[in-house]
């Protein structure tokens, strides 16, 4: 069917608008992704031409205990940091949504930490979590002393970043520093909750918790879903903060070795870009799979008001 002149004009305009994005997408996303796939089957140091080695990188990867260590650390971090971040940010958003004097000031105060650059954040938390001199343990010691006094136990403040048992927990708490972004998204979502639902619930005698559980959370579920996916992607790619906190290493007993860190080591420190590409692709597949699962679950738990 022949296009009319107006249709051609519209198509041209459309292509012109989408063109810059399409070029960027092809050059900066599709091309690197295809290269990653190709190089993952090669021995490639960047400095020498790549040599095809078949599935060697993938075979090595699946028998590489450090890869599994990095994967389990990453999943542990994601499993605890995402729910904790969601709960804390949602809780703060609900509190900050109350119509109290100085609400704007409180909102700013809670958002400000998320503007701190990640490197500064990591250095700051390195000191806050210092086992001997850190403020966290300074606050924790009197509490533990009181518990010890009452119960006769011998609890001691943990060496957050020096002890493999606590390092990941230290990092998870560090992540809470940046919940400000999620809080803003929740606050925006909270403005969309229809007032008449609360009024109807008030008439029915619902209390705060009833309203939160039956009105606020279901209405906010698309926002919760969005923050979960963003949190998932962020948690599976965690790199800068643990890298700086561990001074460029992997933390005690490699407890802060994450997939992205291991990829970086292989690509830029061990001259194994082909192997790093294989790690990258596994990470890509993992994020894709978990996002797909979350999307499937969202069909059951996410409610869109427009539907």
């Amino acid at each position: 069917m022949k296009m009319t002149r107006a249709e051609k004009h519209r198509l041209g305009t459309g292509l012109l608008f989408i063109g810059p994005w399409a070029i960027g997408f092809l050059l900066l996303t599709v091309y690197p992704l295809v290269c990653t796939l190709v190089y993952s089957f090669c021995d490639y140091s960047v400095l020498m031409p790549a040599s095809f080695v078949g599935l060697t990188n993938y075979r090595d990867l699946f028998t590489d205990e450090l890869f599994w260590k990095a994967l389990s650390n990453t999943l542990f971090y994601a499993a605890f940091s995402i729910p904790l971040g969601l709960i804390v940010s949602l809780f703060l958003a609900i509190l900050l949504n109350f119509n109290v004097p100085g609400r704007g000031v409180f909102r700013t105060i809670f958002f400000l930490p998320s503007l701190v650059p990640m490197i500064s954040l990591a250095v700051l938390w390195q000191w806050l979590l210092n086992g001997e001199l850190g403020l966290i343990n300074d606050g924790l010691r009197p509490v533990l002393n009181a518990i010890n006094h009452v119960t006769g136990m011998h609890l001691a403040a943990p060496n957050w970043l020096g002890d493999a048992r606590f390092a990941k927990w230290g990092l998870i708490f560090t992540g809470l520093w940046g919940v400000g972004h999620a809080v803003v998204v929740y606050l925006a979502g909270l403005q969309d909750v229809p007032r008449h639902l609360y009024e109807a619930a008030d008439i029915d005698g619902a209390n705060f918790w009833h309203k939160t559980w039956h009105i606020t959370l279901p209405t906010l579920s698309p926002v919760i879903y969005f923050n979960t996916i963003m949190g998932l992607i962020g948690a599976l790619q965690v790199f800068a903060v643990p890298f700086v906190i561990a001074n460029g290493g992997d933390g005690p007993e490699r407890s802060l070795l994450f997939i992205a860190t291991y990829l970086y080591h292989n690509a830029f420190e061990y001259s194994k870009m082909g192997y790093a590409c294989a790690i990258g692709l596994v990470m890509f597949a993992l994020i894709l799979a978990l996002t797909w699962i979350a999307t499937r679950l969202s069909e059951r738990f996410v409610h869109y008001t427009a539907k």
């Binding site: 020096g162 992997d250 005690p252 420190e269 061990y270």
Partner: peptide
């Protein structure tokens, strides 16, 4: 040529030994 990863591995082993684990 593998000294970077070799030394990182030795450092990790030393870290474990020095914490008694």
């Amino acid at each position: 040529t593998t000294w970077n990863e070799y030394s990182a591995d030795l450092a990790d082993a030393a870290g474990r030994v020095l914490t008694g684990s």
